[in-house]
Each structure stands twice: as C-alpha cells, then as structure tokens.
C-alpha cells in the first residue's frame, strides 16, 4: 500500500537509524574498542586523581593564567590528539570497504539509498566516540566537580574530523588489509606532521597546517568549526564516490 511518505521513512521512521544503531552497537563488541574505552577511562581517572591529590599543581597552573578545567582534561585531550587517528583507524578502518569486500553491501543497497549507508555508518561511529569520551569526562567531572564542556566539545570535533577522514579512506581504498596498514602509518604520522605544520613556516607544510585538525585545536574558538566543514567535505566526497561505484 502506498502511504505517500518517502521510502527512506518507511513505517514512520528513518531506516538509516538501523544502519546507525548496528554500527554503534557493533563498535562496542570488539576487543579493540573495549581496550580503547578501558585505556581512556583509566587515563582519565588516574590523571584526575593525580591533580585532585596535588591541589598545589592546580593552584599554580591557575595562578599562571591557565584555565582550571584544562589541567584536568589535559591528559585525555593529549591522548586524543596524539592517538585519536590511530584509535579511530583501529576500530573503523574497514567501515565501508569490508562491506564491499564481503559483498554484503549488495544486500544493503537493494534496500536503502547509498547515501544513507554512508551517513548512517558515520553517525553510528561518531555516537560510539561521543559515549566513550563522555564516560571519561563524567569521571573527570565527578573528581574535579566541574563539567568541562568546551574541552569535551573540542575533543568530539576532533574525532568528527578523524572519523570522516577514516570513512573517506575506507571508501576510496577497497582492501581492508590495506586500510589497516594505512591506518597504522597515518595514525602515527598525521599527529606528527600536523603538530609540526602548526609551528613550521616551510611552504610544503602549509597544506597540512590547514587540512589537518591540529591548527584549529589551539583555542576553543569558532575556528574549530573548520573541522566540521572539512569533515563534512570528506563525507560528501565519500557519498559521491559510493553513488558512482559498481558494487
């Protein structure tokens, strides 16, 4: 029976939600993701406890003009900046290409539009990281007594960029073994290149300075929104590639 509603809203709900939900729940099931969650939670707890037990350090930092919240979130922020790409690659390097390799993508594309597969998977992974980082920040909040919203937002924006970049790589490179290898190389090299480019005047570092997220992470300002724009660009390119590809 024709209900007159768009097919992507069958039965009154957006069918992309099911792709999103499966990606989100599957992310928690792998050993890699559990280890990452435990690692981040442990670091958050330990660093917050350390500063809680050493109030002199916090006062000294505060008196020199540092924001009080930053000292509590410094450890988790540093870990995400240095290892964020590596973590996202570890969990999601095969987010698209595995479906293509296994040909299960053929089941999906006969039922829902391709753009919904890409965006649904992206949001599912993003939600996983939103929850994972939230666990760490809840621990920090309980110990420090302050909700570090801007630091949390900054971390999530960085991960938004990283996830869209990883999804883009998984769309253009069709072999999951190759994206796993690339993930290790890029996960290690991108933070180094990105941080060096922020402080470098060399002409060949300029593209990295503006394309990688590190230049926009110095302060919690509107420049962070550029991460959002670049991330959306990666997503749009991934959708266009997927629409044109024979599966």
């Amino acid at each position: 029976m024709d209900t007159g509603e768009p097919e992507e809203f069958r039965g009154g709900e957006c069918i992309m939600v099911h792709i999103l939900w499966r990606e989100f729940t599957d992310s928690f099931k792998s050993i890699r993701s559990i280890l990452i969650i435990l690692f981040l939670t442990f670091i958050s707890y330990q660093s917050a406890s350390f500063f809680e037990n050493n109030p002199g350090l916090v006062e000294e930092f505060f008196s020199t003009g540092g924001a009080e919240s930053s000292i509590y979130t410094a450890a988790i922020s540093l870990i995400v900046l240095m290892f964020g790409f590596l973590f996202v690659f570890a969990i999601s390097h095969d987010i698209i290409n595995k479906e293509i390799e296994m040909r299960t993508i053929r089941l999906l594309v006969t039922k829902i539009p391709r753009w919904q597969i890409v965006i649904g998977k992206f949001i599912g992974i993003l939600l996983f990281w939103v929850v994972t980082i939230l666990i760490s920040y809840v621990i920090l909040t309980v110990i420090s007594g302050t909700w570090h919203f801007l630091d949390y937002l900054q971390t999530i924006l960085f991960l938004f960029y990283a996830i869209s970049f990883v999804l883009f790589i998984s769309t253009i490179v069709l072999k999951s073994k190759l994206t796993m290898f690339l993930g290790i190389i890029l996960g290690i090299s991108l933070p180094i290149v990105g941080l060096v480019s922020v402080f470098s005047d060399k002409w060949y570092m300029i593209p990295f300075k503006y394309l990688l997220p590190y230049n926009y992470m110095e302060n919690a300002s509107f420049s962070m929104l550029i991460l959002l724009i670049i991330g959306i660009a990666y997503l749009l390119i991934s959708v266009v590639i997927m629409r044109r590809r024979d599966l």
Binding site: E8, R106, P113
Partner: peptide
C-alpha cells in the same frame, strides 16, 4: 530507484550474507 527499493525484494548471491 531509491524511491521504490522498499517494493522490490532481491535475493542476490548467497555469498552476500552476513555470516
């Protein structure tokens, strides 16, 4: 085509299943 996918049931090759 996206508009009518819900009205089409497809049985592709069995190697395409989520094993």
């Amino acid at each position: 085509l996206d508009d009518v996918k819900a009205k089409i049931g497809v049985m592709p090759d069995i190697s395409n299943l989520y094993d």
